[in-house]
């Protein structure tokens, strides 16, 4: 890494998106404290899919915006406390004589994101659902990772 400040181009390019992602990966803990609205917005440009993580009782709930990706094109793997989302978003249009593309903003290609959760997950209890282009994972914390009350016995 060069020691000088990275020049930020005024017009956003795919490279600046990558730089943002790299910066985010370098500086942010995997799941740090709740980011401010501005930080969350600035920090996740060019990241696909955007992901939210919630804590709900004894489980984590992870949601990911994956519009246009069929459930069978999404691969979810869990290893210990690491969740990996991967897959491919395909956008195909029939092209032929007289067909023109006026605007193309929706991006296609492969994606892969890995997240380290603060605690281990109960693999057998993990559930995934998919609705309106949003993937929801319900990940119960492993029993051994839950806080436990220890009673102190008097001698």
């Amino acid at each position: 890494m060069p020691s000088h400040q990275v020049h930020r181009p005024s017009v956003r390019s795919p490279l600046s998106g990558l730089l943002d992602e790299l910066r985010r990966e370098l500086h942010a803990p995997f799941f740090g404290p709740l980011l401010s609205r501005e930080a969350a917005y600035q920090g996740t440009r060019g990241v696909f899919p955007p992901v939210n993580l919630y804590e709900e009782g004894d489980a984590y709930v992870l949601t990911a915006e994956l519009p246009g990706v069929a459930p069978d094109a999404i691969d979810v793997s869990i290893e210990g406390s690491t969740i990996t989302l991967s897959g491919e978003r395909k956008i195909e249009y029939a092209t032929g004589e007289g067909t023109a593309v006026h605007r193309r903003e929706r991006q296609s290609g492969t994606f892969r994101r890995a997240f380290e959760l603060p605690r281990e997950i109960d693999l057998d209890g993990a559930k995934a659902s998919h609705k309106n282009g949003v993937l929801t994972l319900r990940l119960p914390k492993a029993a051994k990772a839950r806080p436990r009350q220890v009673t102190i016995e008097t001698a």
Partner: peptide
């Protein structure tokens, strides 16, 4: 009763 831990979209 979801407590946000990490938020990338709103």
């Amino acid at each position: 009763e979801r407590r946000p831990v990490h938020v990338e979209y709103r």
